[in-house]
């Protein structure tokens, strides 16, 4: 990280673990859970948020001295909505099947609490470069959780990764299935995502006792 000073590097690295937007700040859970049944959708969602949050943070940071504080929420919503329309149109043009899977959840990036939360908490008070790093860092932290959840749900639920079978063929009983292993259909249904995230939080907080909440 010779390019970045230590303080700047922390802006990116902090949200990856100890200040993770999903598990610690409790932001952006809405869209994080619904699309994680497949790893591919998780990766695309993470990249979309990375783009929207990175660019959006810079725009808001550049506008921060111009926006009257009373109407700032509407201004922020318009900036996000515009960026999300760009993402949505790009997805529809280049990955139509995937945009069908993600469906309305691309649109829901607009109300993703991470984005509004970072605008409010960081971009309104800091310069564009720092805001950019903060946006990238938080989007990466969000993406990491998404990809972990997507990885486990797709691997245990369908025995595939990115749609490619990795555990053998469940019908012809090859690979791991020859030992009597079965796919866990439970991982595909929506509530499983909540439980997987709950377990991630559990693991993270057991490793770092400072994060444990007071009862």
């Amino acid at each position: 990280m010779a390019l970045l000073s230590k303080k700047d590097a922390n802006l990116i690295l902090d949200p990856l673990a100890d200040n993770n937007p999903i598990t610690i700040q409790v932001l952006g859970i809405c869209s994080a859970l619904a699309i994680t049944a497949e790893l591919k959708a998780s990766v695309v969602m993470a990249l979309s948020v990375l783009f929207v949050l990175g660019v959006g943070n810079v725009v808001i940071s550049l506008l921060r001295n111009v926006i009257p504080s009373k109407i700032r929420i509407i201004v922020q919503l318009i900036v996000v909505a515009t960026l999300v329309i760009v993402v949505d149109q790009v997805l529809k043009a280049f990955a139509y099947e995937l945009s069908k899977t993600l469906a309305v959840f691309v649109g829901l990036i607009i109300t993703n609490c991470i984005i509004m939360g970072r605008f409010e908490a960081f971009a309104l008070g800091n310069g564009p470069w720092k805001s950019f790093l903060d946006g990238i860092g938080n989007a990466l932290g969000y993406g990491v959780i998404l990809i972990i959840v997507g990885f486990f749900r797709e691997l245990l639920g369908s025995g595939t990764l990115f749609g490619i079978p990795v555990l053998g063929d469940p019908i012809r009983k090859t690979g791991l299935y020859s030992t009597g292993y079965e796919n866990n259909g439970f991982m595909i249904i929506p509530p499983a995502a909540l439980i997987v995230v709950g377990i991630i939080i559990w693991v993270q907080r057991s490793r770092n006792k400072a994060l444990i909440e007071e009862a």
């Binding site: 909540l194 559990w202 444990i212």
Partner: peptide, 28 residues
């Protein structure tokens, strides 16, 4: 649940997630 003895790392957010997941299975 405030009166229950939840494992310390699960307290607060973690247990809420898991309860919501269980409720979701019920709603299925």
């Amino acid at each position: 649940i405030r009166y229950s003895n939840v494992p310390a790392p699960l307290r607060g957010l973690g247990i809420t997630f898991i309860i919501t997941g269980l409720m979701g299975i019920g709603f299925q």
